[in-house]
């Protein structure tokens, strides 16, 4: 199993998913992220799924779970770079991502996190 690398930029954690996601990969990512957030005290998490072609209902739900977990550490989650096909699939599956924010690309995702950080100064 490949571990998805988690990079730290300032107080934001970036997980760029470059592989076809399996259920266990996402579960591992969730665990790793939770650990890294509590370790670093990051205030934002960005999941970059630009390279992801296929998303099923389980993985869709896991995005929401990751966001909910991050919220417990007072960190916001932004999913960036979702492909049109993936978005259509998720809508057809009837999934909403709950409190997950989305952005077209990494740059806009970082902008959203910066804005959220300003609104709630810590």
């Amino acid at each position: 199993m490949e571990r998805i690398p988690i990079l730290k930029i300032g107080d934001v954690l970036l997980a760029s998913i470059q592989i076809d996601l399996q259920d266990r990969d996402v579960l591992a990512l969730q665990e790793d992220l939770a650990e890294r957030i509590s370790e670093t005290g990051a205030h934002g998490v960005i999941l970059d799924i630009t390279a992801v072609d296929i998303v099923d209902s389980f993985i869709g739900r896991m995005f929401a779970t990751i966001a909910a977990t991050s919220r417990l550490f007072d960190a916001h989650t932004v999913v960036v770079g979702m492909r049109p096909a993936v978005a259509i699939t998720l809508v057809e599956l009837g999934l909403t991502l709950g409190e997950v924010r989305t952005a077209l690309d990494l740059e806009k995702g970082l902008a959203i996190l910066a804005e959220l950080g300003e609104q709630a100064p810590r």
Partner: peptide, 12 residues
């Protein structure tokens, strides 16, 4: 509605 939801999921 689906189009709007999909666009929203993509961050638009």
């Amino acid at each position: 509605l689906k189009t709007v939801m999909a666009a929203r999921l993509m961050g638009a």
